[in-house]
Simulated assay, not measured.
Amino acid sequence: MHAVVTGATNGIGAAIARRLAGEGLTVTLVGRSDQRLRAARERIAAAVPGAELVLERADLAELAQVRDLAERLLSGSAPDVVISNAALVTPLDRRTSDGLPRVLAVNHLAPYLLLRALAAALDRARLIVVGSDPVSLALEPVDLDDFPLAHPERLGEPAGLRPYYAYARTKNMNTMFVYALARRLAGTAITVNACHPGLISGTGLSREVPGLGELIKQAYRDGIFPQPGPQPGGGRWAPGSSGPKDRPGPDIGADTPAWLATSPTVEGVTGSFFVDRIAVQTAPHTTDPERCERVWHDSAALVGLSP
């Protein structure tokens, strides 16, 4: 079997890749730095002697590179599993060469474009999108009238939390995309699911927004955000607690995505969202078919695909 993992050079993505390699899969690591890709390969090879690893460099903020990545993946051994894990939090003024917010391009448009391109050419595959905590995200519905995040003031207050609000909305876009794609692929041998890996330390998710973590912790302490749902490995760590030492590491975060990739238990299961290997309901604003179709069509327009 051949698995592709984006954001595979560190954190949860690297842990997913290592676990799948340990299960005997050939794993393609996708990252935007040759140096970091080589370092990730060395770490995984040291942990899994004999691991079959392929490196693919692509900056997922650049849609042209995502298209090229899809073509390269389809030109070789077709993937049996694709795990879209890459994500980040950035200031909203950081833009791609297409003029889009990087947070929107990397977190949502890249998986939308990549998975659509692959699904159109594959006969059988498991497509998995790594999302975020559905309890917290229930408060952040996608603003369908400002889908490209062109008006940061619409994200809400305080302004310092807007990078988080934007991130949360892109993760809800992921969930809505999964539901819409699963409906389109119903009756095929391609399954599409999403999952929350847990609140995990060592991901570097918000390294581009120093101080955001403290603002989020304060928001939990002040009751602005609800407490997160149950976390993989047990417990209900909240960002308002004493800090990252309370959180499990990337190996725990890799559990549900890797399980979705290979477990016979979920053979044929599609259009679901999993937390700690359990299918859960996400917020109504993410499941409404009309809203999901708006996200599908608006995403298609931004990446240059027919809906």
Rank of each mutant, 00 (worst) to 15 (best):
L92A: 05
S97F: 02
V82S: 02
R95H: 10
L104C: 05
D98K: 01
A120G: 01
G76R: 15
A87H: 13
D80E: 15
D98H: 05
V81C: 08
V103E: 02
L113Q: 07
R102N: 06
L113C: 07
T90D: 11
T90M: 04
N107T: 07
R102F: 04
D98G: 03
A86W: 10
H108K: 12
A78T: 07
A86P: 02
P91S: 11
A110P: 03
G99I: 08
A120P: 00
L113Y: 11
T90H: 10
P79V: 09
R116G: 04
L88C: 13
A120L: 08
N107M: 00
L115E: 10
D80G: 15
V106H: 02
L113D: 03
G76W: 13
S84N: 15
P91R: 14
G76T: 10
D98S: 12
V81F: 13
G76I: 08
V106K: 01
D93C: 07
L118R: 04
R95F: 04
H108L: 06
V106W: 00
T90E: 08
R94Y: 06
L92M: 04
L109P: 00
A110K: 06
L113S: 07
L114W: 06
L109N: 04
L118N: 03
V82F: 12
D80Q: 14
V106P: 00
T96M: 09
V89T: 14
L115S: 03
V82L: 14
V81T: 13
V103P: 01
P101A: 14
P91L: 02
L114M: 05
P79E: 11
R102P: 01
L100S: 08
